[in-house]
Design a binder for these strands. Sequence first.
DNA 1: CAGTATCCTGTCCGATACTG
DNA 2: CAGTATCGGACAGGATACTG
Lengths: 182, 182
Amino acid sequence: MQRKTFRNMQCPIARGLERVGEWWSMLLMREAFYGARRFDDFQKNLDIAPNMLTRRLTALVEEGLLERRQYSEKPPRYEYVLTQCGRDFLPVLLAMLAWGNKHFAPEGPSVELRDKETGKVVDPVLVDAGTGERLNFKRHALVAGPAAADGMRRRLASAASFLGGAEQTGEAGGAVLAGDLP
Amino acid sequence: MQRKTFRNMQCPIARGLERVGEWWSMLLMREAFYGARRFDDFQKNLDIAPNMLTRRLTALVEEGLLERRQYSEKPPRYEYVLTQCGRDFLPVLLAMLAWGNKHFAPEGPSVELRDKETGKVVDPVLVDAGTGERLNFKRHALVAGPAAADGMRRRLASAASFLGGAEQTGEAGGAVLAGDLP
DNA sequence: CAGTATCCTGTCCGATACTG
DNA sequence: CAGTATCGGACAGGATACTG
């Protein structure tokens, strides 16, 4: 049977993973944000076998992250451009980048996000676009949405009490987001 | 040879993927944030085979995202708790959640992030913690860091001109982050 | 340049059985 | 409850050759 498909799952994270879970997918998305459009663009920076590249590219097109667009009649040539869905993936990539830089770059970062005006390194954090408030589990919570099944509701209820901040083992615990996971 | 290891790569995204690229890894992390600590906690919500669970859990411990901690002498029992590194992974998960909700929940979201005070749904976006400015490629840029090799420098230079916003195909393109990817 | 066509292999993962 | 031990299969991924 191999890998279970998560497609029928409720969890939005699992659903996202369905689309970009393969090893190359996120790297291809990264390349797309770096400006790659053509087969060759992707290939030369990634050292990926051409058949694999075809497969992953096709998959990303099917999932709706990329669009295959003809840019030459003859010979017929196609390029792969980010769709809106694909562009919306950027925050995930940047969150990953920040996390990678923070924890897996002992020799210092090789890629940094910088403010062009001040020249300073940017520390990217998540905030609520509406209020500008930094995300934290004192004020914000994961709750069941309209489409949630019963099982999901129960799980989120128990998750809420965990994330909500009740000390539970007498252990202080470190900071998360704005600083308060038990 | 199978899957190339990205460990020697410069890119922080690839380095991150090294740790959480497997299918189950991110789901296990999600569970950890939902409060799972014990073997059984993880197992019952995920429908994962016990041997796989052991493997992934062990891997996450080795990567430093979880810590295996003894909570009972006899019988010897262990629990898996988030390390600082693991907690810092939350933004990636939330970004993924937001993305999944936006694009892959046609029937409406089953999990929402809400502001407990206002009751409103949160739209999570990335900002610069220093300035509060929403990330956008007019003002912010990916640049080579101190540890960047030459190849990386070149790539980022070309990426910069892409992300920076030069119209390049006469196509307007949609919004990214604060709204301006070409 | 932009792929397609084969073939092969590793391993991720699933199923099941078993243990203290 | 918290795993370990085997076994097997499917597919991601690699290598290489070939085409218009």
